[in-house]
């Protein structure tokens, strides 16, 4: 029983990080139809920004915020200056995001060096919690709560605010939204900024748990892609459900079929792709 609890809890907490990363990817794809390969690298650069902030101020929560904001600014600049010119050129947009991956990876080497670094969470989050015979890392619980709060906030933003409804309209149909008086360029910047913010923030959040090291970007990115492919691009509900699935399946897969880690994750994805290319909650194409 405890065994199962532990595995499911671990799965959910991993799903929480995957959700924060995937949600940004999903929004960006949903609205702008950009496959943003740089997203994992945003995650990593965000972690480095958070690290620098933490070193300067000692405030972990400020680090999360700064990590997010720095990447949001970077994302908006990239969107405004580069991606916007390539609207409608799907392939060009993907290729250019790959270009930014390489440039940013190199920038990391230059600015922060090749050293692997770790980041400490505040003391009260670094302990181990206990309920009966079930013990769990506090930090993982924190991640789950944080992701849940973010999901609720995003849901509120999407369904209850005017800006949010423009975003939703843009997900459904950009041209139509433009016709209805939505300021599409602003929505694009907003969405890209928000998506990048989530990526940067999740990088900082993951740092105390995964450490920060070159290569982390491409180690975590596949999970986010699986989540948005399974969940459906642009769907908040889809991202929540699929991220949890990814977390739990990955956990149980590694537990029971360690030789087929990754495959246990990719196979369901392939099956869903074959049956429903738009994902569980995506709009049919």
């Amino acid at each position: 029983m405890t065994f199962w609890l532990t595995q499911i809890f671990n799965g959910i907490s991993y799903g929480a990080i995957v959700f924060l990363l995937a949600m940004g990817l999903s929004l960006i794809f949903g609205v702008m139809k950009v496959i943003n390969v740089t997203h994992g690298t945003y995650f990593l650069v965000g972690a480095y920004f958070g690290l620098t902030t933490l070193k300067q101020t000692g405030n972990f929560f400020l680090a999360i915020l700064i990590g997010g904001i720095a990447i949001a600014i970077m994302g908006i600049v990239i969107e405004r200056v580069f991606l916007r010119r390539l609207q409608g050129n799907d392939l060009g947009q993907v290729l250019i995001t790959m270009g930014f991956v390489l440039v940013l990876q190199d920038a990391i080497l230059v600015i922060w060096g090749p050293d692997p670094v770790s980041m400490d969470a505040p003391k009260f989050l670094a302990s181990t919690g206990r309920i009966g015979g079930f013990s769990f890392p506090m930090y993982r619980l924190f991640l789950i709560v944080f992701a849940a709060v973010t999901a609720v906030a995003l849901w509120f933003f999407e369904s209850r605010t005017k800006v949010g409804s423009s975003v939703r309209a843009a997900v459904d149909d950009v041209e139509m939204a433009g016709g209805m008086g939505v300021n599409v360029p602003v929505v694009f910047s907003l969405v890209f900024g928000l998506g990048s913010f989530l990526a940067g923030m999740s990088g900082v959040l993951a740092a105390p748990w995964l450490g920060i090291q070159a290569g982390l970007d491409f180690e975590i990115l596949p999970f986010a892609f699986v989540a948005i492919i399974v969940g459906g691009m642009g769907s908040l509900k889809g991202a929540v459900v699929a991220s949890l699935l990814v977390g739990i399946i990955d956990n149980l897969g590694k537990t029971f079929f360690p030789e087929f880690a990754y495959f246990t994750l990719f196979l369901p994805m392939a099956v869903i792709l074959a049956i429903r290319p738009s994902g569980l909650f995506g709009r049919a194409m």
Partner: peptide, 11 residues
């Protein structure tokens, strides 16, 4: 800085 060079070629 070969990464930057290749990245810039993409861009």
């Amino acid at each position: 800085r070969s990464l930057t060079v290749v990245g810039c070629i993409y861009i």
